[in-house]
């Protein structure tokens, strides 16, 4: 009896878990599914199989400035990643592998500032960008990631745990310059950590909507989330096109995730758990 109950329970749990998994897959099926129909078809009958309009919807998008928008998103993400990672690695190296007055203070500062909600600086940031005459460019969307406390904190954690101090010392004794030590000795150790931060930064900047919405007014400067939110024809929403656009927006994220999922999941878990 008890055993029967046990198998029943297991089955229920199994089914529930399967449903949970299924629910996680829904959007990734729904986006291309709905994106493969015209809006008119979608309204007539909700589809459960793929249609043949995906190419057409994409073509309509490309006739607009979707390509330019896509490029903007790539630029913003690439810029954010490069700057933020370089700056964080340098800072993390400095506070973990050198002993100087203020190192621990800076570390505390970084940890404390992680808690600050980003919106608090939004208004000031917009005004600042206005004063710097940068509001007509993609720069504000990149600069905002430059000194990102979480990225830096993550790098610090990683640097602490996976770069043995002895290697650095021996490098110093060999007379290597500090930048060289960083590039040729430290870098290989922290490569997995960098991979994780790169993906995280990519996710954040690629998916970011609020700040671009407030700061970008020029169609030519739109990023994908902005473009999708503004996708209209005359007075109505083109659902098919919107879904196709969203499919394209999600696509690179999935590809990256599939390729790097192992190091990503590992990285994100280790980074936060050790905190």
């Amino acid at each position: 009896m008890k055993k029967l109950f046990g198998t029943c329970g297991k089955m229920i749990i199994g089914v529930a878990f399967a449903l949970l998994l299924l629910s996680c897959l829904i959007p990734f099926v729904l986006l291309p599914l709905m994106g493969s129909y015209s809006t008119e078809e979608l309204m007539r009958q909700l589809p459960f199989t793929f249609g043949d309009k995906f190419y057409e919807n994409t073509k309509t998008l490309l006739e607009g400035n979707f390509l330019k928008v896509y490029l903007n998103s790539i630029l913003v993400s690439a810029g954010s990643i490069v700057f933020s990672v370089v700056i964080s690695v340098l800072a993390a190296y400095s506070v973990t592998k050198f002993r100087y007055k203020g190192a621990s203070l800076i570390t505390t500062f970084i940890i404390v500032t992680m808690m600050v909600p980003g919106q608090i600086s939004t208004i000031g940031y917009i005004m600042e960008m206005r004063a710097m005459h940068l509001t007509n460019s993609l720069w504000p969307l990149i600069l905002t990631w430059m000194a990102h406390p979480f990225t830096c904190f993550f790098m610090i954690q990683f640097m602490k745990s996976s770069v043995p101090t002895e290697v650095i010392e021996s490098g110093r004794i060999d007379g290597a310059s500090e930048p060289r030590i960083l590039f040729s000795i430290v870098l290989p150790f922290i490569r997995p950590g960098i991979a994780t931060t790169v993906i995280l930064l990519f996710l954040w900047s690629w998916n970011s909507y609020t700040l671009p919405m407030l700061i970008i007014n020029n169609n030519d400067m739109f990023t994908i989330p902005l473009y999708v939110a503004n996708l209209i024809s005359e007075f109505r929403f083109d659902i098919g096109g919107r879904m196709a656009a969203l499919t394209w927006a999600v696509f690179p994220v999935i590809i990256l995730f599939v390729i790097f999922s192992k190091s990503f999941i590992k990285g994100i878990a280790s980074g936060s758990v050790k905190g």
Binding site: I123, R130, T135, M213, I215, N217
Partner: peptide, 15 residues
């Protein structure tokens, strides 16, 4: 979105 966009344009002083 018109109002929000107009306001943010006015706030940013561009476009």
């Amino acid at each position: 979105d018109y109002l929000t966009k107009l306001q943010s344009a006015l706030a940013t002083g561009t476009d």
